[in-house]
Design a binder for these strands. Structure first.
Length: 258
DNA sequence: ATGGCAGAACATTTCTGA
């Protein structure tokens, strides 16, 4: 069983890439971020033909998240309690695996740049609301998986040159402290259980030759609750996807279950 | 210091992203 997450930077512009990824890698569940479309123009049919049901929380032009699944999912949720700005950045569901219920939460966390603007304050508040939600979820469901584009570089090792990012909203110390706060309430940065290597990036900017120079960032994550991590046997970054024609600037992250 | 690239839309320019 495999769950993947991928910021596709427009699902319609990337439809061929996503269909090819599905065909070759066969995730049971695929979490998508930055679909950049309203629900009405989401390519449900193309994914249905590929064997997937789509659950969508869309928005015009920006943001938007979706969950593709081979089987029906329950308790679809598309709001973050307390978020007054209501951008489409979260979709959650319940998934039954080996007779156990896993709460899966797909997020596209605000980027927050430039720092110390409304965008930054929105990011910090959004994380605070997410932490409130995760505290509740972990009480109700011991098995919780949070996947998606966190727009947070957890540690210095997770970026090609951390000194360039000291005052960036994806790395500033207060943002990283918030990430650590999520860990402290009972989650694990699952990739790092299986892969301690530097240069394990999930995003490369389109600009300035970031990809050929391997100037990457690790900002896409699967956080597993402490009780869930024992069900996970591996987490992998699908780096080769960045070589696609017309690629997304992010690559998929795959979480394998025992 | 700042542009470079990419996608969407009230579109041939502006905005957003990270």
């Amino acid at each position: 069983m495999k769950i993947s997450t991928w910021n596709v930077n427009s699902v319609r512009a990337r439809i061929d890439n996503v269909l090819e990824y599905i065909k070759l890698n066969k995730p049971d569940i695929l979490l998508l971020q930055e679909i950049k479309t309203i629900n009405e123009t989401f390519p449900y049919e193309a994914f249905k033909k590929a064997g997937y049901i789509s659950y969508v929380n869309g928005q015009k032009s920006y943001n938007g998240v979706a969950i593709l699944s081979k089987t029906k999912l329950k308790n679809i949720e598309t709001t973050l309690r307390g978020d007054k700005i209501k951008q489409a950045r979260i979709i959650a569901c319940d998934f039954e695996y080996k007779k156990k219920n896993i709460k899966i939460i797909n997020i596209y966390l605000p980027n927050g740049n430039p720092i110390d603007t409304d965008k930054f304050f929105y990011k910090m508040n959004w994380i605070k609301l997410l932490i409130n939600k995760l505290k509740l979820e972990i009480k109700k469901n011991k098995l919780v998986l949070v996947g998606g584009d966190f727009n947070i570089i957890p540690k210095e090792i997770d970026v090609y040159n951390y000194k360039n990012f000291i005052n960036d909203a994806v790395f500033r110390i207060d943002v990283r402290n918030k990430f650590d706060e999520i860990i402290k309430i009972g989650f694990v940065d699952s990739l790092r259980i299986f892969n301690k290597k530097e240069k394990s990036y999930t995003y490369w900017d389109y600009m300035s030759g970031a990809w050929p120079k391997n100037n990457g960032l690790r900002i896409d994550h699967f956080l597993a609750s402490n009780d869930l991590i024992s069900l996970i046997k591996n987490v992998e970054i699908k780096k080769s996807i960045r070589n696609q024609i017309k690629p997304s600037d992010h690559v998929p992250l795959e979480c394998f279950f025992i």
